[in-house]
Nucleic acid binder design. Structure first.
Lengths: 176, 176
DNA sequence: CCTAAGTATCTTAGCTCTAAGATACTTATT
DNA sequence: AATAAGTATCTTAGAGCTAAGATACTTAGG
């Protein structure tokens, strides 16, 4: 089907184009064009996300743990944040964060200590091992992204980032 | 921060730009540019996906159930597919598909019947109610996508779809 | 035919998440 | 001070997924 000579002129059809065409055939008047964008966004998120997750497994962590370690590392010295801040920036419930921190602490990648200024609170700090793990895993995950992104020439990479920035602003702003 | 006059000239910074800048400050030489694309793809998938899910809830279904009903509806008359085919096209394990079909059958949206030509197999068929639900829910979900996509002018919408098609081909091809 | 290998579906155990709520501490009001 | 309201974290129950494997049927090879 993909190599049908009838469509050789525009050899850029993919599964998503097929789905859009099916809807058009089944329900004329539906105008399913937006699916061509969001269908691909969903598939890319899943495909690339799964591939990055397989890479992170080398260090014994999943995507969720990676995100926590990355937030701590990015925050700079002393690599310390409150669970509350992590919960907010990773858009997670407090229960989910408790679980991630339990796993990371058990693996020796973070340390929990009491907040000296507020006895309700905690501080979560990257251990030396944790810092080493996140730096190696982040480089490996980035290499996965770079290899896929290099399908596009540099000027298209930048143009794609710009279009997505605008779209994300529309989704984040309008969706409340 | 977003309305800091110092950055008024390029008033297009978002959270993802901030994350990229943090990595650059913390680890010079990391070249985190690909995150500007994939970070936004992940966020869009989550934000728009969650919003569509809230819409589907009006009909008592989640994203998973929606995808099954949509695959059946798109396939055309007689709206029948084998669980095996659904499992493959939705990239799900057989256990996950069993669960979705159980819920859909309990809700009266699909019917399971034996495959007349292969006694190992089943056929899953959309009920009349199921067909009505998927048509209404698909229109409502599409409206969510269209509202967000219309942040971009029509020519950018098309350009974005083309860039994503190329990127998805690179991810699906290279990732094996 | 008969056996071995293959295929389709369901079952079970374990994982991670959310939603709701409990606990413990802090801040604001009187 | 004393009380009420607010905040940070953890706990619990339930949903939906995957991985592994059980069951039942089909197909291929001798």
């Amino acid at each position: 089907m993909r190599h049908n000579p009838d469509v050789a002129e525009r050899e850029t059809r993919d599964d998503v184009d097929g789905i859009v065409a099916q809807w058009r055939r089944e329900r004329p008047g539906m105008r399913p064009e937006p699916m061509a964008v969001f269908g691909r966004i969903y598939r890319l998120a899943r495909l690339v996300g799964d591939e990055q997750e397989r890479v992170y497994a080398r260090w014994g962590i999943g995507r969720g743990e990676f995100d926590v370690l990355a937030a701590l590392r990015r925050s700079g010295e002393p690599y310390t944040l409150a669970p509350k801040a992590l919960t907010a920036s990773l858009m997670l419930t407090s229960g989910g964060m408790t679980g991630r921190l339990d796993r990371l602490e058990r693996a020796g990648l973070v340390r929990r200590s009491p907040d000296p200024t507020d006895r309700r609170g905690l501080q979560v700090t990257l251990t030396d091992t944790g810092r080493q793990v996140i730096e190696e895993a982040a480089d490996a995950g980035l290499a996965v992204q770079r290899r896929i992104l290099d399908t596009l020439p540099p000027e298209d990479q930048e143009r794609l980032g710009d279009l997505l920035r605008t779209l994300l602003a529309g989704a984040a702003g309008g969706g409340r």
